[in-house]
Nucleic acid binder design. Structure first.
Lengths: 179, 179
DNA sequence: TGAGTCATGTAACCTGTTACATGATTTG
DNA sequence: CAAATCATGTAACAGGTTACATGACTCA
């Protein structure tokens, strides 16, 4: 989540409240967070020097605008171009895709390729699981239970195949066409 | 995660180690957890009386087999048939789908219908977001950045449409065909 | 006998949530 | 002027992760 905040502040320096609204609106697609956790993350980022306070309006509860520092920009860049960590493809890839326009154009395609590869790797795991399920004989009283487990797996396989071709196509095209 | 453990113990009473292996293997599709968190969840479930120790092998570190209690079965049933909580469709629906065979056959289709409805509701939110994005004029210097945000949204829309039809089809068929 | 795996357990830590408190500004 | 919204802040808590400790069994 820290990286999502860094990205949002790179898009536009803004206040805690602005970030909260941003998360409620569009960013929820990619990551959801409560106001409390955004505040916490903001404090941590400040402590680590990855963001700084750009301005404070005078008065008791004046608006405080935060801005990503150079160190923060570097951290964000490392995250964008680094390992696609996260147990789940959507968690690993979508936040980065959302901010991909912040990278230099030449850095984008490799990231898309790694998303495709990650999707493909996930698919391989699921296929292995499927073969494992196919290999074992199911006692009659578990027929139904296993049928739903297979259905769950089938959903995963379908999503995985979709993800591989989707990220593959995007990488082939070198990004979204309508620039 | 507590509910996933309850479900696994309903499928087969087993030890902490067995659960860890289960999570590493098949269940990862649906939920992932570290060994430490499984232990923690197990202790909590014991405290709440939702599971109990079925047997302990003698000796220093003898195998301890856990079993879901009647209260645990009730809790699990409420979870399966209750609100599809969870920010994300996959998190809300897939674990329940995985265990759907544990419900009485007449209870299954309504659950599948609610998964479809949830998917449809998520899709409506994304469509609203899309219209919001379409409505606003984008300054030239943000063209690229917004293009990637649109691409992210497009991915979400495609997954959402897929989910709606997939859960819809499954509910129409009344469950997986190959029982 | 030494490596690997079966098997449980502990504790510090991190991240995020909940639920609330506080006050300023806008607008019907 | 009252209500809504803008705006920040806090503290307790919950859930999960990390990293390690411990010990038994198996088998090359």
């Amino acid at each position: 989540m820290a990286h999502v905040i860094l990205g949002l502040l790179l898009l536009a320096p803004q206040s805690l409240y602005g970030l909260i609204k941003n998360f409620e609106a569009g960013v929820a697609l990619v990551y959801s967070a409560s106001s409390g956790s955004i505040k916490r993350a903001l404090d941590t980022l400040l402590d680590r020097g990855l963001i700084e306070v750009a301005s404070v309006e005078p008065g008791g509860r004046g608006k405080k605008v935060y801005r990503t520092t150079e160190a923060g920009r570097q951290e964000f860049h490392d995250w964008m171009t680094g390992e696609l960590s996260g147990t789940n493809l959507e968690v690993a890839a979508l936040p980065r895709l959302f901010f991909l326009g912040l990278l230099d154009p030449e850095d984008r395609t490799p990231v898309l390729r790694r998303m495709q590869q990650r999707a493909a790797a996930d698919l391989v795991d699921l296929t292995a699981l499927e073969q494992h399920l196919d290999a074992m004989t199911v006692p009659a009283e578990h027929r139904e239970i296993v049928a739903y487990q297979r259905a769950t797996l089938a959903y995963g396989l379908a999503s995985g195949r979709h993800a591989v071709t989707w990220f593959g196509d995007l990488a082939d095209r070198g990004g979204p066409e309508h620039l």
